[in-house]
Amino acid sequence: MPMSSYVRSIRSRIGHDLLLLPGVTAVIRNQDRFLLARQRDTGMWSLVGGGLEPGEDPREAIEREVREELGVTPRILRVVGAYGEPALQTVLPNGDEVGYVTTAYECELPDGALVLEHEELIQVAWFTRAEAQDLPRHDWIDRVLADAAS
């Protein structure tokens, strides 16, 4: 995923050291199925989302991220939870260490076709929680999906 100018400016000062970043995650469901996205950089399945821009409201950020990645503007229903754990910390291919703290929002999509953003995503598909267990996925989404289902 492209690096924002804000993160680039911080990286120029701290190098590859750990950088904690705020993010947003969209939990998009249709009854017992959840929309998961397969990421181009890792091939792993996850939830749609991304980082906040400086001064951006988290609700605006989730709308922007879903619009950028799926081509539609979601309707935000509720906050599912906030997550920041070792599973959300990683070392990127360029050596940058990053940890995310993300707020997950349950969202609905309007009727109509999705327009997949191909720079970051390979595909999207609907899965039950049980079906998601068989996918190569980021483990932290299990907790988010469980919280959304309760």
Rank of each mutant, 00 (worst) to 15 (best):
D142T: 04
G23M: 09
N30I: 12
R67P: 00
N30E: 12
T103F: 09
G99E: 13
I76R: 10
G51L: 09
R67N: 06
A82M: 13
L116F: 07
V48S: 09
A146N: 12
M44L: 10
L135V: 15
T103M: 13
D111G: 11
S12C: 13
L19G: 12
E63W: 10
L88Q: 10
Q39S: 01
P54C: 04
G43H: 07
R59N: 03
E106H: 13
D41L: 07
V124Y: 02
L18D: 07
D41E: 08
A104H: 05
A125F: 03
T128H: 11
P86T: 02
C107H: 02
S150V: 15
G84K: 09
W126Y: 03
P86N: 04
R67V: 01
V124Q: 02
D41P: 01
A149T: 06
R75W: 07
I62P: 08
C107K: 06
E106V: 04
E53L: 15
P136F: 13
C107I: 11
V115M: 10
A113G: 14
A26P: 09
G23K: 11
G81L: 08
D41I: 02
R137N: 10
R143F: 04
V144P: 00
A82T: 15
E85I: 01
I122A: 07
P58L: 06
P110F: 10
W140N: 06
G49R: 05
A104T: 08
E106L: 13
E131C: 08
L19S: 11
D142C: 04
S12I: 08
E131G: 11
I122F: 00
P93R: 15
V7Q: 01
T42S: 10
V115K: 13
R29P: 01
G71F: 05
L114R: 09
A113R: 06
Y6I: 00
L109D: 02
T90V: 07
S4H: 03
R129W: 06
T42L: 07
N94F: 14
V66I: 03
V80H: 08
